[in-house]
Write a protein that binds this DNA or RNA. Structure first.
Lengths: 166, 166
DNA sequence: ATAGGATTGTTCGAAATTGAACCAGCCTCG
DNA sequence: CGAGGCTGGTTCAATTTCGAACAATCCTAT
């Protein structure tokens, strides 16, 4: 088989290394954050993410589906976690007036408090591990990279039949 | 509270956006790959990763612990997945001579075949979503970013008491 | 040698995630 | 209208993951 054949089948070694390292770094980051949150604050990273997004939202509330979208998990997982958070008293469900199917999830004062207690811990971790060593050029570059990746993913989502087989 | 106070507690909005997008992109990538592999090739991304690493290793084999390290998951998860792969006939366990505790996991011919069938599919996906739009500068920059993140993580692992509280 | 500590891999129970199935309410077009 | 399709959310079984506990083996320092 020719060189082009190899190229089409496998990644160039250096490129492959980048991809591998990407996977490792993301997993390790996730793991670190998760562990820290659980040990020090008794919540999962997904739970923390939910609290963050709610705090960000208008009225400190959000719809289930939107939550699932920004968190990037299955809807059923959101239902599960919102139940947990609700049992913990960090979150409340509210009926939605404009759409009788919908439910709003709203941060409770206790939820906000818990978030504000946890945030410094994990934000400093994110800074140390992820952001502190970036100079301006680098963070601009990273922003651009994330942009193209995001666009590529959008494109694939929009057109699901994007080379579906093999 | 002053501006510095805010800075120390929350991320600057733009920086926060980068971090958020990073989380979303990584999750979406993972999700895409996983789905594609399951639908077209009947294996998980973790299982695929295991096959890849084994194919890479000397003699197409690897120790359990090393596998857990490169895949970045709990040891018990590796045990679980190696059992599955072994039931599928894609992988074999072998006793380790030099260390009686150890076990080697070895790719079977069927495993190699399965990997070679799946690889083009997911590699082209990785290219399309992740790599194709990177010019030389960017991929060099990405490599450097991954390097610093990796070093930061190593540093934290080496020194677990790295600001443990909050 | 040998005791103490570290490492290897498995087992176990608990928790999380997923996709499919499902019900309701919405919305559009004939 | 009102029938069909779409969307929002929940339920359910199956899969996966995790960490802690454990047993076996290795290694090191006395």
């Amino acid at each position: 088989m020719g060189a082009g054949d190899f190229e089409s089948r496998w990644l160039r070694p250096d490129v492959n290394a980048v991809w591998t390292r990407f996977l490792q770094v993301t997993h390790r980051l996730e793991h670190h954050i998760d562990r820290r949150l659980q040990v020090n604050h008794g919540i999962t990273h997904t739970q923390y993410e939910i609290l963050v997004r709610l705090a960000d939202g208008d009225e400190r509330a959000m719809r289930m589906s939107d939550l699932a979208d920004v968190i990037v998990t299955a809807k059923s997982a959101v239902t599960y976690q919102v139940n947990k958070l609700s049992e913990m008293g960090l979150v409340e469900r509210h009926k939605c007036d404009s759409d009788n199917r919908g439910t709003w999830v709203k941060l409770t004062p206790a939820g906000l408090e818990r978030l504000e207690k946890a945030a410094p811990c994990i934000l400093s971790l994110v800074r140390e591990l992820f952001l502190d060593d970036l100079n301006c050029d680098q963070s601009a570059e990273l922003d651009k990279l994330l942009g193209t990746w995001s666009d590529n993913l959008d494109e694939h989502d929009r057109n699901p039949s994007h080379r579906p087989d093999h």
